[in-house]
Design a protein around this nucleic acid. Structure first.
Length: 581
RNA sequence: GCUGGCAUAGCUCAGCUGGUAGAGCAGCUGAUUUGUAAUCAGCAGGUCGGGGGUUCAAUUCCCUCUGCCAGCUCCA
């Protein structure tokens, strides 16, 4: 029975397979360290893990030892047998086994839940299942790492040891997976950022990235694009200060709800804060004058640099930093304009992400524990976001309790090279700030009314977005973003004159051109130019100098052969104009 | 912040159980004038992340701080 290879294309089968392997991991650990206490061990996206509470710290050698024991268990071909117990017996059983975490899990199960166990050989685990029939169905196992993880994901609880692993129905598939991970690591934006000299982080400023000339090119192009697209969509742009006085942050609610993430300073003995968000500044900008209902919606954009105190362990290249620039905007509108504005922003985000070929998923983050405002206001805001999504026919997952303290939000998540997702775009609906700042517009009735407000970003943070771009394109950026669009290489120094003239012409046309007229072999210069990920390489020798041509190679399309400079120039300008990827 | 690991030249890395450091690439100098992924030679480059301790002697052992990596927590 069930001797055929499991269908790994089927998610249920895959999860079942890996869940069974996590039980085998637990069995092996219990065999080697009987005093280990079992927590939980689910299957996850690319594998599985199991959490243990154990005095002994697992080492890499231990992982090898455990793997050996796991292989012994799979060879033994133990059947997995399910059985159920009434609540009291289940508790007694786990108490007898001295598994306090399992006891806690059982205690927290709903009254009417059937409590089931799976037994393989001398090992039994509390588990809802399902599982494979026999341990021998598990073929290729790799334990990948050990890391700390809080019991029940609660940082106030004990930290356990988590062993991560993965498994496949064949060694070939496992090897293929591991090779893919190795490949993906080469796309790491921290590595490419260093290789292409885009940005740098120094011990002098952990989480405070420096942008180098090549990185600034990408950044400036993105910002130019951002301004142009916002202009088209009826946004105006402002810039608000980095430092504002303490009182403002009391008014906004940041003092009460966001203080742990803020930096503070004193000026002339008065308390000031460095802004962690741009909204309070935008509120002041809005209320500088009276607004008529005819003026709404007002879409006020700002490339606003914020500073947030992130925990040191959370920092990650450009993806998670302590200062970043949000491509922020605050939309002030009539209540009845809410849904259309939300839809407009959804379309805007989709337009930008699609331009780069990004895949993304959307989450609706709801009311957090520490929030401002009434449940009714939150319901109203969540409903508006939900309905806008539903009317657009878009799928989303609910991220319970992850909203901002002032309102719920739609989060747009992009993937890095290893498939980790990062929140980039977000649309947040806010009924709180308008009240707190008492901002108004004059309605048709001549009375003051309260506008509704949206906070939204498209890139999210320029820094994080650049990180995602680097990994997505592995440094081979679309031409319009590429730091070096063209590099001209001479075969010998004799052709330096023609090369310089050509470079001058292309620069004149607006292209970013570098020139390599060094006295080196063409193969050497070519190799260097390719390593620098120049978009186009133009080789210039005797033939080209005579014919007024270039021999062109594209970083994406390979050899393109010889072409007239005019044709080359037109081709590149079109590619830039089209923002081709 | 927490758990574990790591920190040697600009970069990538060697350096067994303690005896004050080495390679490749990059850089500089010279020669080579070259047609699609590395021409040759020479030179220079490091108080071995910071501080403290043990020792006759510490890059190596211990403590501590800082930073980095993976994960957790948190989040754009």
């Amino acid at each position: 029975m069930a001797k055929e290879k499991p269908d790994f294309g089927n998610e249920e089968v895959r999860l079942k397979y890996r869940h069974t392997t996590s039980h085998i991991l637990a069995q092996a650990v219990k065999k080697l360290w009987p005093e280990a206490k079992l927590a939980i061990g689910p299957a996850i996206a690319d594998g599985f893990y199991y959490d243990f509470d154990l005095e002994h710290k697992f080492t890499d050698q231990d992982l090898n030892k455990i793997t050996k024991e796991m292989k012994r268990i799979t060879k033994a071909g133990l059947p997995l047998e399910r059985f159920e117990l009434p609540r009291e017996e289940a508790l007694a059983f786990m108490k007898e086994q001295d598994e306090p975490y399992k006891v806690e899990l059982i205690n927290d199960l709903p009254e009417d839940e059937i409590i089931s166990f799976y037994k393989q050989g001398d090992f039994t685990d509390l588990c809802a299942g399902p599982h494979m029939e026999k341990t021998s169905q598990i073929k290729a196992i790799k334990l990948t790492s050990v890391a700390g993880a809080y019991w029940r994901g609660d940082s106030d609880r004990k930290m356990l040891q988590r062993i991560y692993g993965t498994c496949f129905p064949s060694q070939e598939e496992l090897d293929e997976y591991l090779a893919k991970i190795e490949e993906a690591k080469k796309r790491d934006h921290r590595k490419i950022g260093k290789e292409m000299d885009l940005f740098a982080l120094y011990d002098e400023g952990p989480g405070f990235p420096f942008f180098m000339p090549n990185g600034m090119i990408i950044r400036n192009e993105l910002e130019n694009f951002w301004r142009e697209e916002h202009r088209k969509r009826g946004y105006e742009e402002i810039k608000t200060p980095l430092i504002l006085n303490e009182q403002l942050w009391h008014t906004s609610g940041h003092w009460d709800h966001y203080q742990d993430n803020m930096y503070f300073t004193k000026i002339d003995g008065e308390d000031y804060a460095i802004k962690p968000m741009n909204c309070p500044g935008a509120m002041l900008a809005y209320e500088r004058k009276l607004h008529s209902y005819r003026d709404l919606p007002i879409r006020m954009g700002e490339l606003g640099q914020v500073h947030r105190h992130e925990l040191s362990g959370a920092l990650h290249g450009l993806m998670r930093v302590r200062t970043f620039t949000q491509d922020d905007a605050h939309i002030f509108m009539l209540p009845e304009q809410t849904k259309d504005e939300i839809k407009g922003v959804i379309d805007f985000i989709d337009y930008v992400y699609s331009l780069f070929g990004f895949k993304y998923h959307i989450e609706l983050s709801t009311r957090p524990d520490d929030s401002m405002g009434s449940p009714e206001e939150w319901d109203r805001a969540e409903t508006a976001l939900r309905e806008a999504m539903e009317e657009k026919g878009l799928e989303f997952v609910i991220n319970e309790g992850d909203g901002a303290f002032y309102g719920p939000k739609l989060d747009f998540h992009l993937e890095d090279s290893l498939g980790r997702t990062w929140q980039c775009g977000t649309i947040q609906l806010d009924f709180q700030m308008p009240q707190r700042f008492d901002i108004t517009y004059i309605g048709p009735d001549g009375e003051k009314h309260r506008p509704v407000m949206i906070h939204r970003v498209i890139f999210g943070s320029i820094e994080r977005f650049i990180g995602i771009l680097i990994e997505h394109f592995a440094g081979k950026f679309p031409l319009w973003l590429a730091p070096v669009q063209v590099k001209l290489l001479t075969v010998t120094e004799k052709f330096a004159g023609y090369a310089e003239k050509t470079a001058e012409r292309l620069r004149e046309a607006g292209l970013r051109v570098e020139l390599d007229i060094r006295n080196e072999k063409i193969g050497y210069k070519l190799r260097e130019a390719r390593n620098e990920r120049c978009s186009y390489i133009g080789v210039i020798g005797e033939r080209e100098a005579e014919a007024g041509t270039l021999t062109v190679r594209s970083s994406k399309a390979g050899e393109l052969g010889e072409m007239p400079v005019s044709e080359f120039e037109a081709k590149l300008l079109k590619e830039i104009k089209d923002k081709a990827v």
